[in-house]
């Protein structure tokens, strides 16, 4: 996994609550192996017509087509557990999504792929979106170590993140490395557990 430390980049506002993973990656693209093709899959049916031509969509338009940050509304990433929704965001270039709330599975999937989900208040997100709409191409700076988002006007917003998630993102660590440190505890657990419920392995 690629680490996430700091980023200063163009941010795109998406003014829509409950954006589901079907929108981020329509189901029929689920089978596509992870790769650069996912950049086009992001919001595919919102961004492209059946003949492949572009529809009007913020992520199709300059300068937002170069965005690396999305400022969204509440309940971002609801619906299917598909990790390909994160692949689509990541391959498009998105490294951070800022929203008032995230669906649980999707936010987990973001962390596992080096994409930082930042939770800010509903009013803060709305203000940031308005600012970005009024100043297309404005950048946001996200500093994970300091846990801050700084807008183009210099205002700084603090966000919370679980210390373990923070460490994993900063260092690009995946969970397996962490788990294997506990081999002995795992073996002891499993021996006792198997004894208790022997039928589970049958």
């Amino acid at each position: 996994m690629n680490p996430f430390t700091t980023i200063t980049a163009i941010a795109a506002p998406i003014d829509e609550p409950n954006v589901d993973t079907n929108q981020l990656c329509p189901t029929r693209f689920n089978k596509v192996p992870r790769g650069p093709a996912h950049a086009r899959i992001l919001f595919h049916d919102r961004r492209f017509n059946a003949d492949g031509s572009e529809k009007e969509h913020i992520l199709n338009a300059e300068p937002f087509n170069r965005a690396q940050i999305i400022v969204a509304d509440r309940n971002w990433g609801s619906g299917s557990s598909r990790e390909s929704a994160v692949y689509a965001l990541y391959e498009f270039g998105i490294r951070c999504v800022i929203a008032p709330s995230f669906a649980d599975i999707h936010s987990n999937n973001c962390y596992k792929n080096g994409l930082l989900p930042v939770i800010l208040g509903e009013a803060q997100c709305a203000a940031l979106r308005a600012q970005l709409r009024d100043n297309p191409g404005a950048t946001l700076s996200v500093d994970l170590a300091a846990q801050t988002v700084t807008d183009a006007q210099g205002a700084t917003h603090h966000f919370e993140i679980h210390p373990v998630r923070k460490k994993c993102l900063l260092e690009g660590l995946d969970d397996i490395a962490r788990t294997t440190q506990y081999r002995d505890a795992l073996d002891a657990f499993e021996a006792a557990y198997k004894n208790e419920r022997p039928w589970l392995q049958a």
Binding site: R82, S84, V86, I105, N108, N113, D175, I176, L186
Partner: peptide
């Protein structure tokens, strides 16, 4: 439900 990375972790460990 879990995503592909977590599922890989479950399968492996």
């Amino acid at each position: 439900g879990i995503g592909a990375s977590d599922m890989m972790h479950v399968m492996a460990t």
